[in-house]
Design a protein around this nucleic acid. Structure first.
Lengths: 208, 208
DNA sequence: GAACTAATCGGAGGCTCCTCCGTTTATGAA
DNA sequence: TTCATAAACGGAGGAGCCTCCGATTAGTTC
């Protein structure tokens, strides 16, 4: 568990920019925007009006766009914390479970997280898409977490070795297509286990 | 009216509306819109400006929206033919292959079709989403095609029986998340085969 | 062929998106 | 404190989305 002290690694790009520490008013506005955005997104989903968010935060639309060039930038900042937690859970799972079980469980949590964000699916998607270099940070965390789990399971021999962890991520992403049906959760469970079984197929150490 | 009157209930909603046969000018405009939309979508992707399409078709934006209440309605009409062909291929595949092979091959074609429509992914998605009742027609064809293939493979014992064909469709849909990377096609092949292996896991008649 | 009417046409209007850039201001140096 | 200026502010503007509804017109009836 971690009495370790401050996290040593990569720093928050957002909170400590390279040059100057961000002017006081700018920093205030930025924070206000994130706060309001969190509320508005939760209420109206990821398609909420940005002009409305800016208005409620008491700044001009231009200010919002300068801080967050795209809607997704804003989404990322709003949800980064939660995604970080999700990824951190991967380590913990790995410590307390067999590799393939840890993998399965994490996938389910991942999927549950998406489900919790119903309307946000489209905006969140980009956070998990390793191809958008803007979000290398967040996307990287997710990919990293998954990569670790997959690697461990492969090393353990409980899943096949001819698969890439990014394939798994992409396959997973199909799940959040329509998180609106009543049986969504059960369905997602079935799909996750379908995927897991696909992964176990041809594993060195069948069945765990 | 003389003859037996219009056919029973569920006919092509689009081509032969319930009451009248669509006024001549309206029909002309509608056709022109579909034609232009096909071209524009192909050029600019599914996010192309509808006002632009209307303009090029020589009609007002209001006319476009009356014929096609949403962007997706237009997309559906434009691509219905192709989707029909895709679904028709399912029968043919089923006749010439082992059930599980037919299923695998059709999934690949499905995925390839999506890939061919790069920019359209988001708009096309709705065509395959059984939950949108507006597109019951097209979505139904896809679901139907897949259901048939899955049922045959289950009956044959070559895939597991505890899975629903709509689960498979949803799992597949993850594939068109990012059809923009160079290795997209190989990746999609890997994922399809991953899914297939998941389906084969625990089948009555393992390996085919 | 003319009048009638139901259906179509099509653009104005309200809203949002995102960009651009002139104006205002926080901040560090004198 | 005052000043200079880099940086932030914020709204106008061009474009698109979709809705609404008065003007227009194709079909039908007499």
């Amino acid at each position: 568990m971690g009495t370790k002290g401050p996290p040593p690694e990569l720093q928050e790009i957002e909170l400590s920019p390279p040059a100057r520490p961000l002017r006081a008013d700018a920093s205030r506005n930025r924070e206000k925007l994130v706060e309001i955005a969190g509320i508005v997104f939760a209420q109206h989903g990821g398609d909420a009006s940005l002009e409305n968010i800016a208005r409620q935060a008491g700044v001009g639309i231009g200010t919002l766009y300068r801080h967050f060039p795209t809607r997704e930038h804003l989404v990322e900042v709003v949800y980064r914390r939660e995604v970080e937690a999700l990824c951190a859970a991967a380590d913990e799972l790995a410590q307390h479970n067999a590799p393939d079980v840890a993998l399965a469980e994490w996938m389910q949590r991942f999927v549950d997280y998406i489900a919790a964000k119903r309307g946000m699916a489209n905006s969140l998607r980009i956070l998990f898409d390793a191809n958008s270099d803007v979000f290398a940070n967040t996307a990287g965390m997710v990919t990293g977490a998954l990569r670790g789990l997959v690697a461990a399971a492969i090393a353990d021999g409980s899943i096949r070795s001819d698969i890439d962890s990014s394939d798994v991520l992409q396959a997973l992403s199909g799940i959040y297509s329509s998180p609106d049906t009543p049986d969504w959760r059960e369905r997602s469970r079935r799909i996750v286990s379908l995927l897991m079984d696909g992964l176990r197929w041809g594993a060195a150490k069948p069945r765990s």
